[in-house]
Computed example of a mutant assay.
Amino acid sequence: MRVRRISSILGGTAALAFALSACGTADVGGGGNDSGDGDGGGETITIGVKYDQPGLGLLKGDAPVGFDVDVATYIAGELGYEPEQIEWAEAASANRESFLQQGTVDMVIATYSITDERRQVVDFAGPYYVAQQDILVKGDNEDIQGPEDLEGKVLCSASGSRSAHNIVDEMEIDAELREAGNYSECLSLLGNGAVDAVTTDNTILAGFAAQNPGTYRMVNNPFGEERYGVGLPAGSTERCEEVNAAIVKMWEEGVALDALKKAFGETDFAYEESTPEVDACK
């Protein structure tokens, strides 16, 4: 198992018109060595995951751990790759599309919600899990109990995520938006009082709350739906079908539930236990 930190230096090409500005660290690679012919078992496969989300994708020592990492490892295995053939790359919310477009990674499994806008530039398999959106506040903040209480408050979300815009644009709640490079930065802003709340998927917030008991409180008033997909380069219909088959098998065998229990079993987060229905590949 190999770990790479990859920065994304975005060009101004038309192919990146929908990609948001990137963030990351060093060592730009040329993507995985997966041939994409559906046979799997190439030299390596490069998978983008989060490195800063407890319970989902968190870099510990020299390797990431969490539910998304377990899902990625299982899917890679079904495609013919052993764990030591996986190269991990840090995929921040803002660079997931560009990494897939540029061939920096072969797939992205990083709390990557399936949306029509994103489907214009990348393909998705899945979903492999269906989350909901929620809100995180300081542990002693009892004033915010739901989205409606964010009126006039400062709300943080990571660059490249649409969570805060769901509240401001879709729910028409007049909150002031503050974007950060990632959710770890949002947590720092929340801790020092620069923002009043952080919003994103309940899976992500549960991990941060569990890592900081008493410091932060998840409102536990979920809303909306976030369908986590496996991001693939555009035109990956055959690979999409293979990944969908792996996702279905992962749930049928109980592997997905075992991974959820391992990630969130010691928290009070009520994770979804029902098998998601995967979309047809196009």
Results as ranks from 00 to 15, higher is better:
126 G>T: 10
199 T>V: 09
126 G>E: 10
126 G>H: 03
136 L>T: 00
179 E>T: 12
118 R>Y: 01
81 Y>V: 12
83 P>L: 07
100 L>H: 03
112 Y>C: 09
142 E>A: 12
106 D>E: 12
103 G>R: 10
172 E>P: 01
168 V>A: 03
202 N>M: 15
95 N>D: 14
205 L>Y: 08
190 L>C: 02
113 S>L: 04
95 N>P: 00
116 D>C: 05
152 G>L: 10
157 S>R: 07
156 C>V: 03
123 D>P: 01
174 D>H: 07
200 T>R: 05
182 N>D: 15
199 T>Y: 03
204 I>H: 06
131 A>T: 11
110 A>I: 05
209 A>V: 12
139 G>D: 12
180 A>P: 00
148 E>C: 04
81 Y>N: 06
107 M>E: 13
117 E>T: 04
141 N>L: 03
121 V>L: 13
196 D>M: 06
190 L>N: 00
111 T>G: 14
131 A>M: 13
92 A>Q: 08
202 N>E: 15
178 R>P: 02
166 N>D: 09
150 L>D: 08
130 V>N: 12
187 L>I: 12
112 Y>R: 02
96 R>A: 09
205 L>K: 09
112 Y>H: 14
166 N>R: 09
110 A>S: 15
171 M>Y: 07
131 A>D: 15
158 A>T: 09
179 E>C: 05
153 K>Y: 05
116 D>N: 09
187 L>P: 01
158 A>L: 02
154 V>T: 13
205 L>V: 09
105 V>T: 10
101 Q>T: 14
187 L>H: 00
171 M>T: 02
92 A>W: 11
191 G>W: 00
89 A>H: 09
198 V>A: 05
119 R>V: 07
97 E>Y: 13
111 T>R: 02
